[in-house]
């Protein structure tokens, strides 16, 4: 009888211990995952994915990591050079203001489009929005953190 009580006590405690072994293993997996994510890249505010580009600059599918201020246009001094005949020299600027992205048209000839509509002034953007400069279409995406 005593042996039985002891063995019951042992399985009981073993069950509790195993619950924590599971949690500890999960915690190790999660920590490794977090460390990998942390070392992956310095803080990146967002990225611009080229989804459609008729020309060679930028190429369709190319991805740009965004800085707090990113300018787009045909001029070579822009952060992202859009070598498209319908794009202006200084076409548009993407700015990160605290907690959201904003897009501004810099007086381009053919306008800047967000999700198919022209913008006037400064327009707030959400991740997943589509931007069109000239004939080149980009999508604003969150970086993979």
């Amino acid at each position: 009888m005593d042996a039985l009580v002891v063995s019951i006590w042992i399985v009981r405690i073993a069950f509790l211990v195993l619950l924590y072994v599971f949690l500890a293993t999960v915690a190790r997996v999660l920590l490794r995952d977090l460390r990998a994510a942390a070392s992956e890249r310095a803080v990146e505010l967002g990225r611009l994915v080229t989804i459609d580009s008729p020309g060679s600059e930028p190429k369709t599918g190319s991805v740009f990591a965004l800085d707090t201020v990113t300018t787009l246009g045909r001029d070579v001094n822009n952060t992202i050079v859009v070598d498209d005949s319908y794009a202006s020299g200084e076409h548009a600027a993407l700015t990160w203001r605290g907690r959201a992205w904003f897009l501004e048209d810099l007086g381009s000839t053919n306008g800047t489009f967000v999700n198919g509509g022209t913008i006037d002034g400064v327009q707030p953007l959400g991740f997943g929005d589509e931007i069109q400069v000239g004939r080149v279409r980009f999508r604003l995406e969150r970086s993979s953190r």
Binding site: Y86, N110, G111, N115, G116, G117, E130, R139
Partner: peptide, 15 residues
């Protein structure tokens, strides 16, 4: 993204 009607054409049309 659903695009507003004709906008795809509008930009290149201003050639």
């Amino acid at each position: 993204r659903p695009r507003a009607g004709g906008s795809r054409r509008r930009a290149p049309a201003a050639s």
